[in-house]
Write a protein that binds this DNA or RNA. Structure first.
Length: 502
RNA sequence: GGCCCCGUCGUCUAGCGGUUAGGACAUCACUCUUUCAAGGUGGAGAUCACGGGUUCGAAUCCCGUCGGGGUCACCA
């Protein structure tokens, strides 16, 4: 039988739809379409605690907004369904049993405490690596009767994959098509991965391998963060006696700061909903994302050709897509260049297209704003400006502070800066719990009380720091819409500005 | 820290043994425009992370060092 070219993306429905998901989806889709293959969407909702239906829906919505549609998936169906892992539990159980029967996996009865003390011991012995290795496993060689006895007592267990341990120097190798080289890892450095959790849900590793095989995935295009666990996956394919797909590990999008860490919401907006509400067009975002990992520039082009080579549609990309041209170094996400590309797409629109686009965008923006939407609407006349002007603070990456606005705090810039610093420290200490309008209100009141700040000055300082203006939407709501991490970095920006006023 | 990956202008990149190291964004200057953008022209900006090799010749191949990132969960 001839092998069909099939790729997939497998996001997990937790939290906001991530720009990284779109990045991976883009390359998967281009790859598939350029080969006349299929692009599949599979929902990896094996984390019972964190997966939500709402998050799943916003993955669908965001990807559809971008035009990154899929040929098979939970919503559109397909011949390899179901496409939601929570609906495939029986399949995983069956396959785990197969591994158990063939001695490739075993039941492990170690408790959380056992694992903790194992790690402590490894740290105490100054072992180079900590983890549940074959040599550390008390459960690996349990006799059949011992296992039976424990099960009878109702002890909870997980199922772990056996890593070959006969040859101390043995290693496993796979070929990475982005880096165009073999990547190897020693067996002795691979821990015995949990396949089935004690809630009898599969882990990512098991579900992913089983599904990729069952869904006939020929090519895996995913993020670089999976490179280290790929040997485990290869081991699993081998344990089942299956062929491995081809692996393409895309390098990760990075924060544009000097360290270039993996792009994260702690430092920058990453939600696709944010980009949409901010007024980036799908074509611009896609074009920009493609540029991050793919270059069409090559030798022998004329000057005219070179000038327009960075502006292209996904259709054009598909037409000439060459996976060998995907770059292997981690690109910094340049919000400024995104803006420039977006401008350029705006200019190429007709007036009619522009109106249609902005109308849709306004509707979406209000939905995105949620409880803030009525406030925005109410201020429309008072501000006598565009609605978007009032919400601009949410979408700008760099503030444009003015001394006049900060003068309305009515205390010296230095004092204002110190006050903001204090507030910021409290935000940092409690970041995870500050996630609602009410929380912002409580925390700010508490800080003001504890430090004896002037109530009015503190609020005005925060308002100007957050929005750049003494006139704004309600403060707590604005801060909540911004999210605590962006509030924190905005205070940094404000403090820098205030200190520059001598 | 162990292991893995990556390393060309500030940023995204071209380059695959011989180039004045090319382009794009940002930046600067000039220009066009009744203004502001856009457009046009030009400039500056990279000892190709560093140190050793191999070679007549290295950004390109090899080794080492350094730097950055990723990963070490009953999360994906």
């Amino acid at each position: 039988m001839s092998k069909e070219f099939r790729v997939r993306i497998a996001p997990s429905p937790t939290g906001e739809p991530h720009v990284g998901t779109a990045y991976i989806a883009l390359f998967n889709r281009c790859f598939a379409k350029s080969r006349g293959g299929k692009f599949i969407l599979r929902i990896e909702d094996t984390d019972q605690g964190r997966s939500t239906a709402q998050s799943e829906q916003s993955i669908f919505d965001s990807l559809n907004w971008l035009g990154l549609s899929w040929d098979e998936g939970p919503d559109v169906g397909g011949p390899y369904g179901p496409y939601r892992q929570s609906e495939r539990l029986e399949l995983y159980k069956k396959h785990v049993q197969q591994l158990l029967d063939t001695g490739k996996a075993y039941k492990c009865f170690c408790t959380k405490d056992d694992l903790d003390s194992l790690r402590k011991r490894q740290e105490f012995e100054k072992r180079p690596a900590v983890g549940y290795f074959a040599s550390d496993s008390p459960c690996r060689n349990l006799s059949e009767s011992e296992v039976e006895e424990r099960e009878k007592r109702g002890l909870p267990f997980v199922v772990r994959l056996k890593v070959p341990n006969e040859d101390p120097d043995g290693e496993i190798t796979f070929f990475d098509h982005i880096r165009k080289k073999d990547i190897s890892r020693k067996y002795s450095e691979i821990d015995e991965q949990i396949l089935l959790k004690s809630d009898s849900f599969p882990t990512y590793h098991l579900a992913n391998v089983v599904d990729d095989h069952l869904m006939d995935i020929s090519t895996v295009v995913r993020g670089e963060e999976w490179i280290v666990s790929t040997p485990k996956h290869v081991l699993l394919y081998k344990a089942f006696g299956w062929d491995c797909p081809d692996f393409y590990h895309l390098s990760l999008l990075r924060n544009p700061d000097k360290n270039k860490s993996k792009i994260s919401k702690r430092k920058n907006p990453v939600s696709l909903r944010w980009f949409r509400a901010a007024g980036y067009t799908p074509q611009a975002l896609l074009n920009f994302l493609a540029l991050m990992g793919y270059s069409r520039i090559s030798e022998g082009k004329t000057k005219e050709e070179l000038a327009s080579l960075e502006m292209f549609s996904i259709e054009e990309l598909i037409k000439e897509f060459d996976p060998d041209r995907i770059s292997s170094s981690g690109p910094a996400f340049d919000y400024e260049k995104l803006g420039v590309i977006n401008d350029s797409y705006m200019q190429s629109m007709s007036v009619e297209e522009f109106c249609r686009y902005q109308n849709d965008r306004l509707v979406y923006l209000m939905e995105y704003l949620g409880e803030l939407a009525p406030e925005v609407k109410n201020r429309f006349r008072r501000f006598d400006r565009e609605v978007c002007h009032v919400t601009d603070f949410l979408f700008r990456m760099k503030m444009n502070y003015s001394p006049q606005e900060f003068s309305k705090v009515k205390i010296a810039p230095k004092e204002t800066a110190a006050m903001l610093k204090t507030i910021q420290k409290n935000f940092k200490d409690n970041a995870v719990s500050i996630n609602s309008v009410a929380e912002f209100k409580n925390v700010i009141a508490e800080i003001i009380g504890n430090n004896g700040f002037d109530n009015r000055a503190a609020h005005m300082a925060l308002r100007v720091a957050m929005v750049g203006s003494a006139e704004s939407l309600p403060l707590y709501e604005s801060m909540s819409a911004l999210g605590v991490y962006r509030c924190i970095s905005r205070i940094d920006e404000a403090v820098t500005f205030l200190n520059s006023l001598s």
